[in-house]
Simulated assay, not measured.
Amino acid sequence: MGIVTRSSTSRKPSEIMKLIVTTFVGVVFGFFIGVSFPTLSITKLNLPSSLLPSLDLSYIEDKYTARTWSFMKSNNSASSRNHLSNDTSKIWVPSNPRGAERLPPRIIEAESDYYLRRLWGKPSEDLIKKPKYLVTFTVGYDLRKNIDACVKKFSEEFTILLFHYDGRTTEWEEFEWSKRAIHVSARKQTKWWYAKRFLHPDIVAPYDYIFIWDEDLGVEHFNAEEYLKLVKKHGLEISQPGLEPNKGLTWQMTKRRGDREVHKVTEEKPGWCTDPHLPPCAAFVEIMAPVFSRDAWRCVWHMIQNDLVHGWGLDFALRKCVEPAHEKIGVVDSQWIVHQSVPSLGNQGESHTGKAPWQGVRERCRKEWTMFQSRLTKAENAYYNAIGIDPSNSTAH
């Protein structure tokens, strides 16, 4: 008995040590398996249930799923940071203006204005008043007194913009209003050259109406505020003041009628109008003193050609930009002007082949009219042909 007891006692420590070592090795092995395969689900091992301890397997799956999700989020976040740091196209908004697709929409300023700003203080406090209308004159210094009289007919509701074709700008500071005006100078250019380059629709968008006037207009019988009241009352998108009948008159349509506020149709010489709703009997104003609504100007600006700077022929095509043109284009009779017909810009030309400067300018005006008509007709015909319509049967001409 004593021998048996002694033998049993001597083996016990050795067996305990083996059990400890085996357990330790098993734990270490299991730890490395877990680290190496973090997404491994115990239920996918298909082990007999008798070999699994009594555990909540759903907890184990959820635990590993959570660990996996956390791991993936961490990796994706790091990957995103690396991607964003190396990829400048992380923002791409096709609906943004062309060229600005990489910008977030809320930073986009697609339009601008002519409002003058201070060099100090808060930007939000710069403007005491925002003018609602824009008036432009293409000017030379010699007619400064006439322009001074014109500008005084426009209230503080108007931004004044002068286009200087003679390069003289600083001399205009003799007029107090000139210090608040916008001055743009380019020698020997016409108002339509300026308009195409400095009156982009997105620049003049804050203004309800845009006046694009010559410098040789008498305005004794004109008031800008009253004029716009009538424009709005009669629904005119493109208009001009009536012209004094006895001076500088070319077309019957622009002749002032003394018995009404506004007229939209007239009678011309026999054969001049193929349709009573077409120019020059209707849907027509001249290019010396036109006034455009914001929407109408957006269309007209796109129609102005870069190289045809005198604008001849444009007045016959203005009807393309409003519908119905014979109702939305008209002449305001009760606010009228005088066309003084001063050939100031004509004198900016150069003598050529023995001709006076103004003669060369006039020849180019006529040539541009023909070129514009030809371009417009070809463009319209190409459009109708492309959609399968015979241009000769179109009513849009």
Rank of each mutant, 00 (worst) to 15 (best):
S7E: 09
S8T: 11
L19P: 00
L19R: 13
F24C: 06
F24A: 09
G26V: 12
F31A: 15
F31S: 13
G34Q: 08
G34A: 14
K44T: 14
L47W: 15
Y64I: 03
H83E: 05
N86I: 10
D87Q: 10
K90T: 13
W92F: 15
V93T: 07
S95P: 01
A100M: 13
A110W: 03
S112V: 02
W120V: 03
S124R: 09
E125V: 06
I128A: 12
K129M: 14
K130S: 11
K130V: 05
G140K: 00
L143A: 02
L143W: 00
K145Y: 03
K145R: 11
V151A: 15
K153D: 04
F154W: 12
T159P: 01
D166L: 00
S178R: 13
R180G: 11
K196N: 07
F198P: 04
L199Q: 05
P206E: 06
Y209Q: 02
W213K: 00
D214Y: 03
E215I: 04
V219F: 15
F222R: 02
E225R: 11
E225C: 05
K229Y: 05
L230T: 12
V231F: 04
K232A: 11
L236H: 05
E237Y: 09
I238H: 02
P241V: 07
E244I: 08
N246M: 07
R257L: 08
E268H: 09
H277D: 07
P279H: 06
V285T: 11
F292Y: 15
S293F: 02
M303Y: 02
N306Q: 09
W312K: 12
F316M: 09
A317N: 09
R319V: 01
E323N: 12
E327L: 15
G330S: 05
G330K: 07
Q340T: 13
S341C: 06
S344K: 02
L345A: 04
E350H: 15
Q359D: 06
Q359L: 04
V361S: 00
V361P: 00
M371I: 15
F372S: 02
A382Y: 03
Y383F: 15
A386N: 11
I387G: 03
I387V: 15
I387F: 01
I389T: 10
D390T: 03
P391T: 07
S394V: 12
S394I: 10
